[in-house]
């Protein structure tokens, strides 16, 4: 996993509540056996108005918004299906950070596995970030747990374990394999009813 410490970038605001994973990446694009290549279909139904025809009014398609690494969005982001493809699509598109009012539990867990930093900020703060000009940048500083823009500093919470993983870019499975003795000891105690 790529480490994340500080991200300074322009933003894309998408201030809608309850954006579900079908909206993030519709099911017709789950038919793949790889983890890459989903970015072009991110927010597909909003992004295209016909085959290969981008919707010029949709913010992701605006020329001045290209290259943004931070998505600012509404409450309960990533609700609905558990598809990890939603996170792969955000990442493949180039987003490193999502700032929402809240996340579905599964989406949040998936984001921690893929190095996409999902931050929670209250609505008033997100509205400030959503209103900034397309060429203005904000800074997400993970070590200090704050989002900075102009004179504003917005602190955010993150579990220390996830924070450490993001900063070091650690692979979960390798970490867990370090617990092999404890797992074996546990397995020896599982009741058998046979």
């Amino acid at each position: 996993m790529e480490p994340i410490t500080t991200v300074t970038s322009t933003t894309i605001p998408l201030m809608k509540e309850n954006i579900d994973t079908d909206q993030i990446i519709p099911k017709q694009f789950l038919k793949n056996i790889l983890k890459v290549g989903y970015g072009r279909n991110l927010f597909f139904d909003w992004r295209y108005i016909g085959p290969n025809k981008p919707n010029p009014d949709f913010i992701l398609n605006k020329p001045e918004r290209q290259g943004a690494e931070i998505l600012v969005t509404g409450d309960n982001f990533g609700c609905g299906s558990s598809r990890e493809h939603a996170v792969w699509a955000l990442k493949d598109f180039g987003f490193k950070v999502v700032i929402a009012g809240g996340y579905s539990d599964i989406f949040y867990m998936n984001s921690t596995k893929n190095g996409v930093l999902a931050i929670i900020l209250p609505e008033d703060q997100r509205q400030i970030l959503a209103a900034i000009a397309p060429d203005e940048k904000i800074t997400v500083d993970l070590p200090n747990q704050e989002v900075r823009y102009a004179d504003y500093t917005f602190p955010f919470e993150i579990d220390p374990l996830w924070k450490d993983k993001f900063i070091k870019g650690l692979d979960d499975i390798a970490i867990t394999m370090g617990y092999e003795d404890q797992i074996e000891a546990y397995e020896a105690k599982i009741p058998s009813y046979n």
Partner: peptide
């Protein structure tokens, strides 16, 4: 509970989940 694909990989490899 439902899990994502990275977690599926984790459970396959370790039979555990965080």
């Amino acid at each position: 509970f439902g899990i994502g694909t990275s977690e599926v990989e984790h459970v396959l490899a370790t039979q555990t989940i965080w």
